[in-house]
């Protein structure tokens, strides 16, 4: 099953660094999996736990948050806040039974296009090694979301 499985992955990227890096990866024509969907936020400090949960609830197989390098957040410490929230959300995912390994956080600067591509590949590989989000399967069967 997992061979054919193409995971749906959502990346929450901050405007200043992560999105810049993703953009750069694109213009450098670096190869990274097309199934990573980017959601741009002004800062990863805007990442609320509920955003992460909703992504999974709506069927994402994996989610990652990308912020500026630690110490370089454009809003001082939004990325640190995000890091803690990601940690709590990982625990919740474990409790729910989806597994915290479907979620992660990375830090990079706008100039690190190759790093973005690498992270996107890494997450895709990791999720491929798991089963698809069981909620997505259920949604398909029932022909709809909530």
């Amino acid at each position: 099953m997992s061979e054919q499985f193409e995971p749906e992955i959502v990346a929450f990227c901050c405007h200043y660094c992560a999105y810049g890096a993703a953009d750069l990866a694109g213009s450098m024509r670096l190869n990274y999996p097309a199934n990573v969907k980017i959601i741009k936020l002004p800062c990863t400090g805007k990442v609320d736990i509920i955003y992460l949960l909703k992504a999974f609830e709506d069927g994402a197989d994996g989610v990652f948050v990308v912020g500026c390098l630690e110490g370089n957040c454009h809003f001082t410490d939004g990325n640190i806040k995000a890091k803690r929230r990601v940690a709590r959300a990982k625990k919740l995912l474990d409790e729910i039974g989806l597994g915290g390994e479907r979620l992660d956080m990375f830090n990079m600067s706008a100039s690190m296009g190759p790093k973005f591509a690498e992270v996107a590949r890494e997450m895709t590989e990791r999720i491929k090694g798991l089963c698809p989000n069981p909620l997505r399967e259920k949604m398909k069967n029932e022909g709809g979301g909530r």
Partner: peptide, 21 residues
Amino acid sequence: EKEVGIIASCLRMALRIDGKE
């Protein structure tokens, strides 16, 4: 309010995994 959202979302997912709606 915020935590209600989190709790409800977590429960929806956990119950759906168990085959409930």
